[in-house]
Amino acid sequence: MCGIVGYLDTSRGSRPIGTTLLAMLTALDRRVPDSAGVAVWGEGVDGFTVRVALPDGDELAAHGTRVVRRARELARVSGVVAHGPLLTFDIGKVDAHELVAALERDGAAEVVSLGHRLAIVKQVGAPRNLDTEFGIGKLAGSHGLGHTRLSTESRVDLSHSQPFWAHGTPDLAVVHNGHITNYHRLRRRYEQDGVRFYTENDSEVIGVYLGRKLAAGATLHEAMRDSVRELDGSFSYLAATGDTFGFAKDPYCLKPLIVAETPDAVAIANEEIALHAVLGNGYRAREAGAAEVATWTTPPARGRQKRRAA
């Protein structure tokens, strides 16, 4: 019963993608909002934008200082913003794995998202709190994903909230509705290869799966196409990177996923009510088919283009 939404703004309209995602999620929020979150691919930085969650406790400021110090040892850090247990900063060019290892050493922090363009904002509670707490309505970008969760099998906390960044793969994030029934088998196999899992949530394995395929040279489309045969269960999921946006549906078509393409946008959600909330009446909705995978190339980051032109 999780609500998943995705929006690709091909026309790069004036409405911030954050406002669009918020409207779509709010339309789905009666699906019991245990937690909610959005992933937005914004204008981009040359290095990485990093969001980390600090451990709960009284020494938040000390944890934050320690994490920033570790980041500064690797590259130049700017734009540090703290919001409760969440810390955001930009960092210059650095190896992603080295950075994550440094930040997470001794449980100092958990990296929530990392990428040239990706930023994930999520928390326990209803979607509308994301705007009052974090002002996600103002987030700009070319595409984004959103999730509102009804927890069925694992804990309700920040780590178990979606979207999931595919830990270790910059800019790759996933939202999922359904159950991955071969999760334990896949997880065991990946853990033998040294992959660390951060949650007990079966959805996490999708990002790990896709990240490994990308690392082996597959495109996101190819990785998603393979996933509908190698992941078992009932699922609809959306995945995106800085340059690709798409969806995948299980071979038995057990979970809903409604898709609408207009000249200006691609909007996807598991209820049409979320599409109608942002597209009005000017679209034609269709249900995705069994084992269907579709991806779109996203427009390049606007800010970076401008910088190059200047």
């Binding site: 078509c253 809903p256 049409e272 249900e287």
Partner: peptide, 12 residues
């Protein structure tokens, strides 16, 4: 009994 007509597409 009766009739139901959907002018667009229908889901599952």
């Amino acid at each position: 009994s009766g009739e139901v007509v959907v002018e667009g597409n229908a889901g599952n």
